[in-house]
Amino acid sequence: MGGLWRLGVVGFVVLTIFYICLSLYSRAKRRDKLEAEWDNEGMSGDRDAFIEQGLQDYDGSLRRKLIWGVYIIPVTIVIALIYFMNFH
């Protein structure tokens, strides 16, 4: 039972680090795209407000929610492996 707890804690820490890195990377790429869109289209007005509005839209997007799969998919696979190796 101690091995399972250790696996859970280490797995949670590793997945959290991976989630944070992936989330920051995805947000940075979105910011880069918004900056490039501003520069290419020659928009007028407040550039920072445009980027912040785009990032707020990104925070509610499907892509942002799909990053939670970093937790869901590996945990589901480990649970399925444990179940099938012990009960089938």
Results as ranks from 00 to 15, higher is better:
26 S>N: 07
21 C>V: 15
46 D>L: 02
13 V>H: 01
13 V>N: 08
28 A>S: 14
69 G>S: 05
86 N>Y: 10
79 I>W: 12
45 G>Y: 02
36 A>T: 09
81 L>A: 14
70 V>K: 00
48 D>R: 07
16 T>P: 03
11 G>M: 00
13 V>Y: 13
24 L>W: 12
72 I>S: 10
76 T>L: 14
4 L>E: 11
63 R>L: 15
5 W>C: 07
11 G>I: 03
13 V>K: 07
66 L>S: 10
88 H>A: 13
42 G>H: 02
54 G>L: 00
10 V>F: 09
17 I>H: 11
35 E>Y: 03
45 G>D: 04
25 Y>G: 02
54 G>N: 03
70 V>Y: 04
7 L>S: 15
33 K>V: 01
61 S>G: 06
37 E>R: 10
29 K>N: 07
53 Q>W: 08
4 L>P: 02
86 N>G: 08
34 L>R: 01
67 I>W: 00
28 A>K: 06
32 D>C: 03
52 E>Y: 13
59 D>C: 04
49 A>L: 11
70 V>M: 04
65 K>T: 13
71 Y>F: 15
35 E>C: 02
8 G>E: 04
18 F>D: 06
88 H>G: 14
53 Q>C: 05
47 R>C: 04
52 E>A: 09
43 M>F: 14
46 D>T: 09
50 F>W: 07
55 L>H: 09
52 E>N: 15
49 A>Y: 10
22 L>I: 02
34 L>M: 05
53 Q>E: 14
68 W>D: 10
48 D>A: 15
29 K>D: 11
16 T>Y: 08
88 H>M: 12
43 M>R: 07
71 Y>K: 02
44 S>H: 07
17 I>L: 14
29 K>V: 10
88 H>R: 11
62 L>T: 15
6 R>Q: 12
83 Y>C: 08
24 L>G: 10
84 F>T: 12
31 R>Y: 01
85 M>E: 14
21 C>W: 15
14 V>C: 05
51 I>M: 02
58 Y>F: 11
61 S>H: 06
31 R>D: 03
68 W>E: 09
88 H>N: 14
10 V>C: 10
42 G>S: 00
54 G>P: 00
5 W>H: 09
86 N>D: 11
32 D>E: 12
15 L>V: 01
20 I>A: 13
23 S>D: 12
44 S>P: 05
62 L>M: 14
64 R>P: 02
80 A>M: 14
82 I>T: 13
43 M>G: 01
57 D>K: 14
18 F>S: 10
19 Y>K: 07
22 L>W: 04
20 I>L: 15
57 D>W: 11
11 G>C: 02
82 I>S: 12
34 L>E: 06
49 A>G: 07
21 C>Q: 04
54 G>E: 00
34 L>C: 01
14 V>L: 14
11 G>A: 03
27 R>W: 08
24 L>S: 07
36 A>C: 05
72 I>G: 11
72 I>M: 07
62 L>D: 12
55 L>A: 08
81 L>H: 08
26 S>A: 10
14 V>G: 01
45 G>P: 01
6 R>D: 06
74 P>V: 04
32 D>G: 08
86 N>I: 09
35 E>H: 02
88 H>W: 15
48 D>C: 04
34 L>W: 01
88 H>V: 15
25 Y>A: 03
77 I>D: 07
28 A>V: 05
75 V>P: 00
12 F>D: 05
9 V>F: 13
45 G>F: 03
54 G>M: 01
50 F>S: 00
5 W>R: 06
66 L>T: 15
60 G>A: 05
56 Q>I: 08
